[in-house]
Design a protein around this nucleic acid. Sequence first.
DNA 1: ACGGACGTGTAGAGAACCGATACGTCTCGC
DNA 2: GCGAGACGTATCGGTTCTCTACACGTCCGT
Lengths: 109, 109
Amino acid sequence: MPRRDSLQGSLDLLVLKILSRRPRLHGYAIMTAIQQMSEDVLRVEEGSLYPALHRMEEAGWIRAAWITKDTGRRARVYDLTASGRKQLATEESRWQAVTSAVNQVLRMA
Amino acid sequence: MPRRDSLQGSLDLLVLKILSRRPRLHGYAIMTAIQQMSEDVLRVEEGSLYPALHRMEEAGWIRAAWITKDTGRRARVYDLTASGRKQLATEESRWQAVTSAVNQVLRMA
DNA sequence: ACGGACGTGTAGAGAACCGATACGTCTCGC
DNA sequence: GCGAGACGTATCGGTTCTCTACACGTCCGT
């Protein structure tokens, strides 16, 4: 049963973009944000998001910190680094280029 | 050195679309068609395309046949099946849904 | 004679995703 | 008081996809 992923490599882009506008979000909030903003079309699984966050932290694009919320619950919040902002710009223009190229082929074919 | 693939899961869609408008193309021609139509933005490697063609043939979306061209050179040409046409429609609307959802998140974030 | 386009194909390796699962807390309704 | 469901982080195992690099061979122009 062939399963197709919903995000197709754009997960990093989405996470970086969201963090650029809404700093100090934690993983779960990023997950629900993507889901809500896309009106449930894009659904990020935990098994995709958390490894992606770790990968991006490893790459130096985001920085993590533990906080304790008012409720007493612990959460790991993320912020963009300078390198992350640069990466966001790169991925955003890349996204633009690729999607418009695909659309052009679809129109021309 | 982080390498990013150019097509991100849309390779099947592109191949199906091209074959729907230009029947009996061979792999190499599909390759160059994508490259030219996208003005060199999308570049399909042989190591991606041929396995993809075999996969799609296996799935029953395309049908293959050997021909001998006027030049005497052999080539394996492909055609869409009914199932392939259905799959094309599915992937086309999926592509629309996903890209507009991503764009919406990018705008809203 | 040789390089580059034409043409098909595989092997190996790396990256990414998903589903399931584990662990734990807090809140609300019953 | 107790269970359900939201909140919250995390890993494992399997699958799938892609790229790089190669192997094999032909045809054409210089």
